[in-house]
């Protein structure tokens, strides 16, 4: 699956997107965030407070308990500041 990052998540991770292939047991957004944090120190720091991590799956906002099977595009970003 493709993961996109925005705002200071993108800046700190030094990438706007990456291709990842998480193991089969990673089945929800919450477990995907845990997995991403385990493999990258910066991600661990950025995602330390899980409450500020917003996620969209295939351009649909979801909560952390959403399943990720079959998803092609995951967007991970900090709280939005539009308007």
């Amino acid at each position: 699956m493709q993961i996109m990052y925005f705002a200071w998540f993108r800046e700190r991770l030094n990438t706007g997107s990456e291709h990842v292939e998480p193991p089969a047991e990673i089945s929800t957004v919450a477990s995907l965030i845990d997995w991403l944090a385990e493999r990258n120190e910066v991600a661990a720091e950025l995602f330390a407070d899980r409450n500020i991590v917003r996620v969209a799956l295939d351009e649909q906002m979801v909560s952390h308990d959403a399943p990720i099977s079959g998803v092609r595009m995951v967007a991970i970003f900090p709280p939005m500041t539009g308007g």
Binding site: T81, G82, G83
Partner: peptide, 12 residues
Amino acid sequence: MDWLKTEAPFWK
């Protein structure tokens, strides 16, 4: 405006 502030993916 209230929803746009918190739920539209823009970052300033």
